[in-house]
Amino acid sequence: MTNALRITVWNENVHEREDSEVAALYPSGIHGAIAEGLRDLLPEATVSTATLEEPEHGLTEDRLAETDVLFWWGHGAHDAVDEAIVERVAERVLAGMGLVVLHSGHFSRIFIRLMGTTCSLSWRDDGDRELLWTVAPGHPIAEGVPDPLVVPAHETYGEFFDVPAPEELIFVSNFSGGEVFRSGLTYRRGRGRIFYFSPGDQKYPIYQQPDIRRVLANAAEWARPEGERAIPTVTNRPRGWFEG
């Protein structure tokens, strides 16, 4: 029997406190909307939230030890995240914790740390329609997701996206203004699985869309740890250890 999934949704929670329009869209915060969707679609999972202003950003050693998959939403306060917490999260990912990075989280310290690139891209915000096309239809993250998935209005992201070549490309977006973007990418770092998913700008009610919530729930299931939770280490086997 599979153990119940333990999910933590992290959000800097800055826009909701400083922008009344964002607060109106997300009265429980972006983290609250994401958590609500995960609870609806994964009723057996334990879903909790954490935010930047909490002690240790809500990502204490104990909290991370009890997290199978961490969702990360950030935009305006990347530099406010303590480097020690970034390293703590990175170590947990290398040891097997799943990580789902959302929207402007491409510029988060944790994503840049794990990718080893600038993670830069092109962007503009004219409220363009976005179509997410499934290019890996057999992948678990795409299960039950319409093709294309339509986001009526969104901030536009475009190539070049400076990330390593993904292990799997799940979604590619095109926008009504002409841009294309690799919007759903998977990676492995150490024993941990990582999924980057670009939809979710704070000015749009994207995390209330059922199809977007389905992607996030699928991603949580896909990113769950497999096997031992420990950072891979160097081993030194003595001569003759295997004589079979």
Results as ranks from 00 to 15, higher is better:
4 A>V: 07
76 G>C: 04
136 A>G: 01
146 P>I: 03
31 H>V: 03
159 E>F: 07
128 D>A: 15
219 A>R: 07
77 A>S: 14
182 R>E: 15
107 F>C: 10
35 A>R: 03
53 E>Y: 04
143 E>W: 01
181 F>Y: 15
243 E>G: 10
48 S>D: 13
100 V>M: 12
80 A>S: 14
120 S>M: 12
89 V>H: 00
10 W>I: 06
39 R>F: 10
50 A>V: 03
11 N>S: 13
68 D>Y: 04
13 N>M: 08
16 E>A: 13
136 A>R: 02
34 I>K: 00
173 S>V: 03
111 F>Q: 06
222 W>Q: 07
167 E>S: 14
185 L>D: 05
125 D>S: 09
39 R>D: 10
48 S>L: 14
208 Q>H: 14
92 R>W: 02
48 S>G: 09
52 L>T: 00
76 G>L: 11
216 L>F: 09
4 A>G: 10
83 E>M: 08
56 E>C: 05
87 E>M: 09
196 Y>H: 09
8 T>Q: 11
63 R>A: 14
205 P>E: 05
62 D>M: 10
37 G>Y: 02
81 V>R: 00
119 C>P: 02
139 H>A: 10
189 R>W: 07
137 P>A: 11
238 P>C: 03
74 G>Q: 05
222 W>C: 08
161 F>V: 08
178 G>H: 11
49 T>W: 00
68 D>W: 02
216 L>T: 09
191 R>D: 05
22 V>A: 09
5 L>V: 05
132 L>M: 13
97 M>R: 06
15 H>S: 14
54 E>M: 10
177 G>E: 11
87 E>Y: 11
16 E>C: 09
188 R>A: 13
38 L>C: 02
43 P>C: 11
11 N>A: 12
207 Y>V: 00
109 R>F: 04
102 L>A: 04
22 V>W: 02
244 G>C: 04
160 F>S: 14
23 A>C: 04
70 L>I: 07
61 E>L: 10
229 R>H: 06
63 R>D: 05
91 E>G: 11
80 A>M: 11
48 S>R: 14
241 W>Y: 13
15 H>R: 08
7 I>V: 14
141 I>L: 13
189 R>E: 12
220 A>Y: 02
112 I>M: 14
20 S>C: 02
1 M>A: 15
128 D>R: 09
44 E>V: 07
142 A>E: 03
242 F>R: 15
18 E>D: 10
106 H>W: 08
21 E>V: 05
21 E>H: 07
132 L>F: 08
168 E>G: 07
243 E>A: 15
99 L>S: 04
218 N>G: 10
46 T>M: 11
27 P>V: 07
203 K>S: 13
78 H>T: 06
38 L>T: 08
230 A>V: 13
148 P>R: 06
189 R>Q: 12
205 P>W: 01
186 T>E: 04
